[in-house]
């Protein structure tokens, strides 16, 4: 038992890893073998075999914490006393909160749309060109960088130094401004533009995901479709607009949805760049601040629940898409 829990040499660790994967394979194999009796086993047993382990993990890891969060949102900061809707009331009466909500809306609308659009256009443009692999690797690069690294990278873009003799700009953008004779700007200081500058960072990070997925989708468009369009005299932008985009619609929905949800949850961009100051905070950042900086678990929980609520429209949209595609099928 001890051997399975404590590994302190590289060999031991890799052995443990192999055992874990093997163990997992054996368990799953056993389950699947047990349900693999085509006629004799009722459907629910098969479903349980395929879904059971997953649902178990999800219930323990996500559903239970989510439910206790919902419960916690009705309790005070230490979780001892039931205070009804007070936490929610506090969120919505706080004077700064409209700004937070507005910012969140801005993020969740702009990031998925712009990221997907950019990713799509770029994927389309570099598709089957000679430098495709390199071109994609460049845009994918930010995905491989940790949040900490991204924070530093963008600091060197937005950093401000006054326009004085003997003082050099450190931020790239301000250097460019100075070069064309404009006063350097405090990019992160002035609301509401600063939120846009933060959004740029998020778009920069996520574009690689959108580009990769959409590029694959474009490549999967059957050639006969493209060929038929070409024979009809469609080309260039028309092709993009009337053939490519409609053909990869499901992929677009997937990308939009995924990025929208990631954006709703994201807070580290805001935290590392402005700390939520200067009117840049978003709901997820407020949640983190309350729950883990100020130990106000009740209020933090209420903010988390608000995130659950904000995602409902996205889910509803996806359910609709699901229904539509089921109908077609």
């Amino acid at each position: 038992m001890e051997w399975l829990l404590e590994a302190n040499t590289a060999g031991h660790k890799f052995a443990l890893m192999a055992i874990a994967i093997l163990l997992f394979a054996v368990v799953m194999g056993g389950i699947l073998f047990a349900v693999d009796r085509p006629k004799r086993v009722p459907t629910w047993v098969v479903v349980a075999g395929f879904l059971g382990p997953t649902l178990l993990l999800l219930v323990v890891g996500l559903v239970y914490p989510a439910l206790s969060t919902i419960r916690g949102s009705f309790y005070d900061k230490t979780g001892d006393e039931f205070i009804g809707l007070d936490n929610y009331a506090r969120i919505f009466t706080d004077d700064g909160f409209q700004r937070v909500l507005l910012n969140t809306a801005l993020w969740v609308v702009l990031v998925p749309l712009v990221t997907t659009a950019l990713g799509l256009v770029y994927a389309y443009l570099v598709d089957r060109t000679r430098f495709e692999s390199l071109a994609k690797a460049l845009v994918f690069l930010p995905m491989a960088i940790s949040m900490v690294g991204a924070g530093v990278i963008w600091r060197f873009v937005y950093e401000f130094r006054p326009d004085q003799p003997g003082v050099n700009q450190i931020g790239l953008l301000n250097q460019l401004l100075v070069l064309v004779g404009i006063e350097p700007q405090q990019f992160l200081l002035t609301a509401p533009a600063n939120t846009l500058y933060l959004i740029v960072v998020m778009i920069w990070i996520q574009a690689g995901f959108a580009m990769t997925v959409l590029s694959a989708a474009i490549k999967a468009i059957p050639d006969d479709v493209v060929e038929a369009a070409r024979l009809d005299g469609v080309g260039g932008f028309q092709m993009f607009r009337y053939v490519t985009v409609p053909s990869i619609r499901p992929a677009l929905v997937v990308v939009l949805t995924t990025i929208a949800i990631v954006t709703l949850k994201v807070f580290d961009v805001v935290r590392t760049m402005t700390g939520g100051n200067f009117g840049t905070s978003v709901v997820a950042n407020e949640f983190y601040t309350q729950a883990f900086r100020q130990f106000n678990f009740g209020l933090g929980a209420a903010l988390a629940v608000l995130l659950f609520v904000l995602v409902v429209p996205i889910i509803a949209y996806n359910v609709r898409q699901l229904r539509l595609s089921e109908e077609i099928r």
């Binding site: 459907t43 629910w44 098969v46 479903v47 395929f50 879904l51 997953t54 999800l58 890891g61 996500l62 559903v63 914490p65 989510a66 206790s68 969060t69 949800i261 709703l264 949850k265 997820a284 949640f287 983190y288 729950a291 883990f292 929980a301 988390a304 995130l307 659950f308 995602v311 889910i315 996806n318 359910v319 699901l322």
Partner: peptide, 25 residues
């Protein structure tokens, strides 16, 4: 691919779990 009762509801529920912030867990 396995038709069973409550499939859509369950799927939507799993999908919706994406929003649970890691921190609460």
């Amino acid at each position: 691919w396995i038709p069973f009762k409550g499939r859509s509801v369950l799927f939507v529920a799993v999908f919706a779990l994406q929003i649970v912030p890691l921190q609460v867990t």
